[in-house]
């Protein structure tokens, strides 16, 4: 059954690509701004974590205040949240549109778990593609990004975190979409 669900999800490739692009864009915003914020916070001239080599880098740079840090972090979080809600919305609308078809599957004897495979694979594929786009864009450019901004290797963790986060979230959204659809109706 998973093979059919996979085929069906793949045939909806336009929607999957659209969701993946939105997620990858939001993820990239999150990575970029939070990397910069992280670097400024931890390696600023006012911070004892600063290394000798960092002094030059931050000579003329204004260290962000707590408020602006919070604002940037909140905005990027909101962008990510909006992207995830967009994915959830697409999935729920898709489930509402196909509700009769999914119900028919249950009537002909397909178990509820097997029926749930159909929207789940759709969501996982979108999440996996978004993770792949982020990985394909950020990991190769990371060394250049690092030297261009003079940032530290530790920010790579943020990129990996976002990649994993999107994949896990897409799976959870796929599993919960049915409950959300039922609740909304």
């Amino acid at each position: 059954m998973s093979n059919l669900a996979f085929k069906m999800a793949l045939r909806d490739w336009k929607k999957i690509i659209l969701i993946a692009i939105v997620l990858a864009f939001a993820g990239s915003m999150f990575i970029y701004y939070n990397t910069v914020m992280f670097e400024m916070r931890h390696f600023s001239p006012n911070n004892i974590n600063m290394e000798e080599s960092d002094a030059e880098k931050f000579r003329d740079m204004k260290v962000p205040t707590t408020k602006s840090e919070m604002l940037v972090a909140a905005m990027t979080m909101l962008i990510v949240l909006a992207a995830v809600l967009f994915q959830l919305n697409m999935l729920v609308v898709d489930m509402i549109n196909k509700k009769k078809e999914y119900y028919a599957l249950q009537v002909i004897g397909v178990s509820e778990e097997q029926v749930e495979l159909f929207p789940l694979l759709y969501s996982i594929l979108a999440g996996a593609l978004a993770s792949l786009i982020i990985a394909a864009v950020w990991i190769p450019i990371f060394p250049y990004f690092k030297s261009a901004l003079n940032i530290h290797a530790i920010s790579l963790g943020l990129i990996i975190l976002v990649i994993i986060l999107f994949f896990v979230m897409s799976t959870i959204i796929g599993v919960k979409a049915r409950e959300i659809t039922d609740y909304m109706q």
Partner: peptide, 29 residues
């Protein structure tokens, strides 16, 4: 799955699958 077959007024076939795959669904089940 095995004793009852159900035919709907509005067909209720999965639009994302081919005719052949739609017939394969209960067999996979």
């Amino acid at each position: 799955r095995r004793t009852i077959g159900y035919v709907f007024q509005d067909f209720r076939l999965l639009q994302g699958l081919t005719a052949l795959e739609n017939v394969m669904v209960p067999l996979y089940a």
